[in-house]
Design a binder for these strands. Structure first.
Lengths: 130, 130
DNA sequence: ACAAATGATACTAATATGGTATCATTAATT
DNA sequence: AATTAATGATACCATATTAGTATCATTTGT
């Protein structure tokens, strides 16, 4: 039950760093500060750019910059980007084991717990991580 | 963030079934009722036997039987058996990224959420799943 | 023109999960 | 005592996910 993966972890760290230094920051700087493998960090930042959480600047002196305010970037959002739409794996529905999907008690319990996790994650933004 | 894996799922289903039919039950019966692959089901039951949740009976007419009362078997216990000591992956400590382990905010938040998950899981026993 | 940056994309490695296969052991039945 | 139907133990294989690398194209400041 690994709550977050390395992707997410590194992304959050990068975002925290960037929210403290709100100018254009190169991959190199982040790599040096955070100790994350360079190509992996790049991949993560590129993704955050595609998702419009960062803006990117090519060419000499280029890098990345926060596009959103740190209090508008939520942890759950980052998790969804790197870990998919978390919590929707229908492990109990496979092979028709669960005779009554709606009622299946186990399923309902799990969902309730997942929901509580989401609510808690939904409250955490980058500001609250600094 | 898959909360439970197939192992756990199948184990819980088997335990639920067995708590409704409290005699010796063979792998074959469980396989037929639950539609789980036979060798996989065996492996799971053998493990539950090793963990002293089930008792096993060899030879003709043999099988497995609950060793504990259903209200004494907790979901969290089954998860720990099949998914390891859940929640203790030190993903943030790797490579010394986290400068101050005690204070690391992200880590603390994650732990708080995990704790709440454990509390909720700690309340669910086999009886509450039937 | 050149160098320093990201964009895009394909590939590889490691780990975890899900599942099989096989032979040994036990015990009821005959 | 032999047979048979069950589990015990263990090693193996397959698939999916996660983590990370490599490479070439594109952009832009100097």
């Amino acid at each position: 039950m690994k709550l977050i993966t390395r992707n997410t972890d590194y992304a959050l760290r990068a975002l925290c760093y960037m929210s403290k230094h709100q100018d254009i920051i190169s991959v190199d700087e982040l790599v040096n500060k955070l100790g994350v493998p360079r190509p992996f960090m790049r991949k993560i930042l590129q993704r955050l750019n595609q998702e419009r959480i960062l803006a990117s600047y090519k060419g000499q002196g280029g890098g990345f910059k926060l596009k959103l305010k740190p209090d508008r970037i939520y942890m759950i959002q980052i998790m969804r980007i790197f870990q998919g739409n978390v919590g929707l794996n229908g492990c109990f529905l496979k092979k028709g084991i669960c005779p009554d999907k709606v009622r299946c008690v186990l399923r309902k319990k799990i969902h309730a717990i997942e929901d509580s996790v989401f609510r808690q994650l939904g409250k955490i933004n980058i500001v609250s991580l600094i």
